[in-house]
């Protein structure tokens, strides 16, 4: 249990440090990437490229193992079809992301900067997640 907690803590810390270094804690830079008709900022593409390359290598490593180091099994997502729910949810997320320039990772890591707008956004985001849990079981 201690090893798993430490892994969680270290993974979260590297993630948060990476977000800070990448500039993606700055909603203006994120919106600069999304603003294709304005002064386009390609930074987010560099972040995603680096993250996907290393993530692909890591997943290849994991695929070669029967179990993770500190737990019984890998939680690979089940293969499921593309559903309306997936598309509608992603579209709603995209609208919110475009409005503010924050997605869940930077919204939480950004709390450490002590800025009121980020705290307000993160609180509303948690409320949105609570509202989801109130949906009838069938719709989730």
């Amino acid at each position: 249990m201690m090893a798993r907690l430490l892994i969680g803590l270290v993974a979260g810390l590297i993630f948060g440090f990476g977000l800070a270094l990448s500039g993606m804690l700055d909603p203006a830079r994120v919106r600069g990437f999304l603003d294709v008709t304005g002064a386009w900022d390609p930074s987010l593409a560099f972040v995603l490229a680096g993250a996907v390359i290393v993530s692909a290598l890591g997943q290849a490593w994991a695929r070669g193992r029967a179990t993770p180091f500190f737990d019984k099994q890998f939680d690979w997502p089940a293969t499921r079809p593309v559903t309306t729910r997936l598309i509608v949810g992603s579209a709603l997320f995209g609208i919110g992301w475009g409005l503010v320039g924050l997605c869940p990772g930077p919204a939480i890591a950004g709390l450490s900067l002590g800025l009121a707008p980020i705290a307000i956004f993160a609180a509303a985001m948690i409320v949105g997640m609570v509202l989801f849990t109130l949906l009838p079981e069938r719709a989730r």
């Binding site: 798993r4 390359i53 490593w61 993770p68």
Partner: peptide
Amino acid sequence: VGGCLIGLAVTVLLIGNG
């Protein structure tokens, strides 16, 4: 480099805790 660290973080959680 920040992006690579995010990929590393994802790898640590996957290979350590699955």
